[in-house]
């Protein structure tokens, strides 16, 4: 085996892949977030933004393929680690002490991860699919209309809100954990990293979740 294979198959290597792919996804989420915020500037602003993306469609497609690969790596590697770690710790204690010595965010990474994956499938099969293949060209501001349409369904909006709360939990640990895995731990700046991670997770979760709430309550008007 070459050194690269040895590295990626080692426990630290697998964690490194999780942190690296996770960090790239966290950067993607910031860009996605900024795009979504265009919704608050009205139908015109949002559709102009989407139309701008349409003009660079080939580039967007390349990014989408890369994103899909990163997601697949992150999910596959995460599930593999989860399975291996279950095998390493098959028997539980009579009394569970983990509530007192760990936080809920780090303990639930696998379950929040799987939940986000389910959410991602719902998100892609509805929003992404309609944006790419279900646009009515005759409507004024077609993209904004699509958003309004989907979030009028209370059940669908609720899925989004729950999905974003779970994402917040996942990100709160993810941000700090990535730094630790890369080996960046320092007395001076680790507490700061933890705070930034929590602020990042809160802004993203609340910001994303505010969209279905806004559109459901206001009916997009």
């Amino acid at each position: 085996m070459g050194w690269f294979t040895t590295f990626t198959r080692s426990s630290i290597g697998k964690k490194f892949i999780m942190a690296l792919t996770g960090s790239l996804l966290m950067i993607f989420l910031i860009i996605h977030f900024i795009g979504n915020m265009m919704l608050y500037f009205g139908p015109k602003a949002f559709d102009t933004y989407v139309d701008t993306l349409e003009t660079i469609k080939p580039l967007i497609r390349v990014i989408e393929v890369l994103l899909a690969l990163i997601f697949i790596f992150h999910i596959y590697n995460g599930l593999k680690l989860w399975y291996e770690n279950k095998k390493a710790n098959p028997k539980k204690y009579a009394v569970n002490g983990s509530r007192e010595n760990t936080d809920i965010y780090s303990r639930t990474m696998a379950i929040t991860g799987v939940t986000i994956f389910v959410f991602l499938i719902i998100h892609l099969s509805t929003f992404w699919a309609t944006f790419n293949f279900g646009v009515h060209p005759n409507t004024e501001y077609p993209y904004y209309t699509i958003v309004t349409h989907w979030f009028q369904n209370p059940f669908y909006s609720l899925i989004y809100i729950i999905g974003m709360i779970v994402l917040g939990y996942h990100l709160n640990h993810a941000f700090e954990s990535a730094f630790q895995t890369f080996g960046w731990n320092h007395k001076r700046y680790t507490p700061l990293i933890k705070k930034i991670g929590t602020i990042y997770a809160l802004i993203l979760a609340i910001g994303f979740a505010s969209i279905p709430i806004y559109f459901f309550l206001m009916g997009g008007k």
């Binding site: 426990s11 390493a88 710790n89 983990s98 760990t102 630790q180």
Partner: peptide
């Protein structure tokens, strides 16, 4: 042995 999820139960 398993891998690290950075829960820090070990340090506690």
């Amino acid at each position: 042995f398993g891998s690290c999820t950075n829960t820090y139960a070990c340090e506690a």
